[in-house]
Design a protein around this nucleic acid. Structure first.
Lengths: 221, 221
DNA sequence: ATGTCAAATAATATCGATTTTTTGGGGGGT
DNA sequence: ACCCCCCAAAAAATCGATATTATTTGACAT
């Protein structure tokens, strides 16, 4: 009935729908960095009231995708090389930590989940970019989600999304994978299944650093 | 005119005032873990409307002090040994990282700020607990705020607050410092001023672990 | 021209009321 | 006695309108 459903699927609350929609728009660059986010404008776009919009923007503030300036409204978070570098640094610290813990707690269920997600990701890479993005995130998060450290996982997921945003901004979201990313994923998966924490974290980090350097080059400044 | 001002000082927006007040109430235990946070109840307490309350609670969700259950309202975040341990682990990873970066970028301004904050903390430790808490946080954050890594600093501040909450819950907020905490602070300060990153991070970590063990013991389970 | 101030305009923040959803508590039906 | 469905009370979510605050505009004096 409203645009929220049309865009983000069958959502429950208006707030959650607005959250998902605006989030997606910021991540993909439909709402560019620094853009003023006017309540009225979004209210009209999302076909909802001011309260859900404000609440959604408040939630996005925590995700560091939106900045709030007291009494002066909201805007899409700015971007910059320093910010990108910090995201990369934090990911290279936090993800290995989570991956090690996941491997230390390895069990059959987790390994099966990993294999499955990896399979889905490979299948999705033939189809559209959007599908691949979802499956790619799911695979990477599966690597970390056996750690039993929910806050750490949350940080990693947050940083993953912030990083994706830069990918979309740099390449318009398309064909960013030239390298043998498939092979890199394969190697990470195998190291994880072997419970080889050293190799797995090593490969994960270099996976990130290569993508990071590639984007850094495109970003200038 | 409203309770927000009375409690949290001369605040600008109702939302921000509500945020600070509820935050304080959760940190100090006035709103115990797991407590249902009814909008109407808070609205009455804070003498404001539903929108600022909801928005404040949304913001606190990002701070991991409030849990939101869609269509079912908000509650104060639960606590537990696993959560406490995770906070400690994350602090012991992230704070050294920030401290090293701060020291690497050391300059006179920063060192003066450190000395000043340390001085204020010592003075405040004679006076009330509330004053000391503020000065104590200010000192610890000053150790990290020269790193030029705003997201990392934000994570550290967040984890600091979550940790403080456990202190209040364990000891009612009073006399938790038996040990020579003053001496520990002094030693951290000196190592930082000497640009000795190894010693500084070493001391910082053991500072946290000792307090952590002390609280862990009190927490049972 | 330039800087300043005040009114007009635009946008945010907030309120009060309404709508929707969950919850808890009885009746029927098996 | 047990389970399921439906209804009423309570709470959350949302809306529409108002009050508050920032921003712009333009007249006026320097």
């Amino acid at each position: 009935m409203n645009v929220t459903r049309d865009i983000a699927g069958k959502e429950t609350s208006a707030t959650h729908g607005a959250y998902l929609t605006v989030r997606e728009m910021i991540l993909t660059g439909a709402l560019p960095p620094g853009e003023k986010l006017k309540i009225e404008q979004l209210r009209a776009l999302l076909n909802t009231g001011a309260s859900p919009v404000r609440e959604a923007l408040s939630l996005l503030t925590s995700d560091m995708l939106v900045e709030r300036i007291d009494q002066r409204g909201f805007r899409a978070a700015p971007v910059g090389k320093a910010n990108f570098d910090e995201i990369l640094t934090l990911r290279c610290t936090l993800e290995p930590m989570a991956l090690r813990a996941s491997i230390a707690a390895a069990n059959a269920t987790w390994e099966e989940r990993l294999v499955l997600r990896h399979h889905h990701m490979k299948k999705a890479s033939q189809r559209g970019t959007a599908d691949f993005e979802v499956a790619h995130k799911a695979f990477h998060m599966a690597l970390l989600d056996n750690a039993g450290l929910p806050m750490l996982e949350r940080y990693c997921a947050q940083l993953y999304d912030l990083n994706i945003r830069y990918r979309y901004l740099a390449a318009g979201g398309a064909h960013y994978r030239k390298r043998s990313i498939d092979a890199e994923h394969q190697e990470i998966l195998e190291a994880a299944l072997d419970h080889d924490a050293e190799a797995a974290t090593e490969r994960l980090i270099s996976h990130y650093r290569r993508t990071g350097d590639y984007l850094s080059r495109q970003m200038e400044e």
